[in-house]
Design a binder for these strands. Structure first.
Lengths: 229, 229
DNA sequence: TTCCAGATTTAGGCACTCCTAATCTGGAAG
DNA sequence: CTTCCAGATTAGGAGTGCCTAAATCTGGAA
């Protein structure tokens, strides 16, 4: 019953909880029950129950009424699932004709079914990529991950020319919209105008102007290329 | 609540039951509870329970104490799963370095997770194959399947030269053994000697002699190529 | 300091999928 | 035609994972 190297496989649900909590707890934050419920589209009471069970199994640290964090074991499990997800996405785009904006749901189901062997073979034929089609970094086999710096386009000054690096969105309709206006990782984008108080942002992509909401701008993470006013 | 075209997805377990019952009921036979339990490695009582539930859902015809058969809807669902399984096997062998004797387990998990879209894309890049790496025919999208004639090598006369067409086995160890002596779909095999009363069979493959048990001979399905005594 | 709104947890249910133990049944043997 | 038993079913239980409704807690406003 040692906590190390026990490889009883986790269920689909458990993997989803761990992934969600990983996303909600950057740098030592704690995740609230309601945040998890929100992300997974479950009732808060269901989350309370699962959190209790996962704490007992040593995957989470839970302070009742305060929040949860992953244990080291939980973190490793979460990163294992994330690695699978992102490699599957990269594989489906590279070899099976998926577009980067439609691949998420398929990967969401496959990540719970593939063996380590299969994922590593995908990684091999892909040449061990460091990011997936959304620009998200792929953790390595040991669970190491490094997130290259990037800034939401909603926080960059007007007049700046940027390269889109990451699209932090999983909703299929939003993704399809983002792709439809020419935005994809690697795209050059000019920040034309930013209205104050979380107002709309005007950008130029492939010579075309588009106005996007602040919320959408928040998921478009970029690196500056220089001024171009 | 119509029986037609309802597409609430079936669970993993349900798909496994339907596949098992499909295998156990060639041409109108009925499958016994114990046969299903055996194939799925479950307690007979568990099968009774599930069979009851699946009958109520219209996927099975159950005559208590007699046996079960698939309804038309159950048959279609079984063939859908079998199509997925066999195309996944073919894909993994063709593109991801799996060997035909080790691919079964991976496909067994993936068949419950892939979308129709993904399976059809695999079928496309494979060029719509008609058989999987074990020689098993792949049902088409409408559920039509035709099983080419073949005879277990255990039923063929001594001295005959045959081509191995199908290996009806899913146990990994047995498959690995079969592959290790040079047997695979397409291999030329000479039936050297067959001892009576289900005795051992001596065959020659790739110039090498091997003695196999009758049980193993039963899963090796062949077509005759001619005499060679 | 008290009190309340909102978040959280507990209580009680239901469906699924499995188990063991007890009971029942249909057909074969006497 | 009765008895018996292998095989099938029912009974009762456990774990997962979700739900709604009812307590309960917490932190900030009055």
């Amino acid at each position: 019953m040692n906590a190390v190297a026990q490889h009883e496989p986790l269920t689909r649900s458990v993997e989803d909880y761990l992934k969600a909590i990983y996303r909600l707890t950057p740098e030592g934050r704690a995740a609230a029950t309601s945040e998890i419920a929100n992300l997974l589209e479950l009732a808060p009471a269901s989350v309370s129950g699962m959190v209790k069970r996962l704490s007992e199994h040593g995957l989470l640290e839970h302070v009742p009424y305060k929040g949860v964090q992953l244990t080291e074991e939980g973190r490793r499990a979460a990163l294992r699932t994330i690695r699978r997800h992102r490699l599957i996405e990269a594989y489906l785009v590279a070899f099976l004709g998926y577009s980067w904006d439609t691949v998420h749901d398929e990967a969401e189901r496959l990540e719970h079914a593939v063996s380590d062997q299969l994922v590593e073979r995908m990684a091999t034929v892909l040449g061990h990529p460091s990011v997936d089609p959304h620009g998200d970094p792929i953790p390595d086999v040991d669970g190491a991950i490094h997130e290259p710096a990037s800034t939401p386009i909603s926080e960059l000054p007007e007049g700046i020319l940027v390269e889109l690096r990451r699209v932090d969105e999983s909703d299929p309709e939003r993704l399809r919209y983002i792709a439809s206006i020419g935005l994809r990782p690697g795209a050059r984008v000019l920040v034309v105008e930013r209205k104050p108080f979380h107002g709309p942002i005007t950008i130029e992509v492939e010579g075309q102007s588009h106005v996007i909401g602040h919320e959408l701008g928040h998921v478009l993470r970029c690196v500056p290329l220089g001024e171009d006013a």
